[in-house]
């Protein structure tokens, strides 16, 4: 075997990355996990997680990922704060370019996940942090007694809208179809919550305000084409996610939306490169699926190294 810095480099420190790290550390691989910001991933903004088994009362996102991180470190996982700028997978030994150095490795697990998508409507960028948000747990308390809009119809949109009603006196949930995609239990809670008014068949077309923040939004009914205006103090946007895969390059195959294509062993189109979690092309993106992916990816990486 050629001399390399690592057997395995895991990129991304959300649930998938931390789980891959746990398995790899226990397999005694020479492994490092690179996280560009802070470990935890998207779920650190989730107030309460009720569908992750083993926590019958639920658990907050930050507590859950804090535990995952602690568990992986207990078995010796090294975690570094580093952003990956690019990958070179053209040779058997892969090279990873970081800000100040390049590291080499036999295998890579890409667990960089995804970020909330934006709509690209007028005002969305301008009022980000001044009423436009995608984090109810971070920003909900700023909207005490206020009227807010939420956009989306999936689990995140519905669950976070319910959370917002702890603070806001009214939440308009704007959804482009005439039924929600969220799980039934969340739908039931939303329908039963008299502070939530669902605006069906409608899309957000603009966010407006003053220096102090958002004051109103415009929406359009996709069926009647009618446009209307709503006076709101905030606008939360939960319209799905996009993969954080800008550093990938052209070697690793992705789907039409930029999510990494893998087989049932989590192997990408490049031998020795694996992917796990929200960043891969998959029908479901949950903590439970991310950690399942990651366990498979770690064991696949281990097998790959054994056969070098």
């Amino acid at each position: 075997m050629q001399n390399v810095d690592y057997d395995l480099v895991i990129i991304g420190g959300g649930p998938a990355g931390l789980t891959a790290g746990l398995y790899a550390a226990r397999a005694r691989l020479n492994v490092v996990l690179l996280e560009k910001s802070v470990t935890g991933g998207q779920i650190i903004v989730t107030d309460w997680i009720e569908n992750y088994p083993g926590f019958p009362e639920g658990i907050s996102g930050i507590d859950l990922t804090g535990r995952m991180s602690e568990q992986a470190k207990r078995f010796g996982l090294e975690i570094e704060t580093e952003e990956v700028l690019s990958l070179d997978c053209s040779n058997k030994v892969k090279k990873i370019e970081l800000g100040d150095r390049t590291i080499s490795t036999h295998t890579i697990i890409i667990a960089t996940g995804a970020s909330p998508s934006t709509l690209g409507v007028p005002g969305e960028d301008d009022f980000y942090g001044k009423g436009v948000s995608s984090c109810a747990t971070c920003d909900g308390p700023f909207f005490s007694g206020a009227v807010v809009a939420a956009v989306g119809g999936g689990d995140t949109a519905v669950q976070e809208s319910i959370f917002l009603t702890k603070f806001a006196k009214k939440v308009f949930l704007i959804h482009r179809r005439n039924e929600l995609r969220a799980s039934k239990i969340l739908q039931e809670r939303a329908f039963a919550n008299d502070k939530i008014e669902i605006v069906w068949d409608s899309v957000l077309t603009g966010i407006y305000g003053a220096k102090t923040g958002v004051t109103n939004i415009t929406i359009k009914n996709v069926k009647t084409k009618d446009t209307s205006e709503l006076a709101v103090d905030g606008c939360f946007i939960w319209v799905g996610i996009q993969p954080d895969s800008g550093f990938l390059g052209d070697d690793i195959k992705v789907d039409d939306y930029g999510f990494i294509i893998v087989n049932d062993r989590m192997a990408t189109s490049v031998p020795g490169v694996f992917a796990a979690g929200d960043g891969r092309s998959t029908p479901l993106r949950q903590i439970a699926t991310a950690i399942g992916d990651a366990a498979i990816a770690a064991v696949s990486a281990e097998h790959y190294i054994e056969n070098l």
């Binding site: 910001s37 802070v38 470990t39 935890g40 650190i44 903004v45 989730t46 907050s60 996102g61 930050i62 704060t81 984090c135 747990t137 971070c138 308390p141």
Partner: peptide
């Protein structure tokens, strides 16, 4: 920051 904000807790150590 605020104690109820997950990302705030996360960014603190940095």
């Amino acid at each position: 920051w605020a104690p109820w904000c997950g990302p705030c807790k996360a960014i603190g150590p940095i």
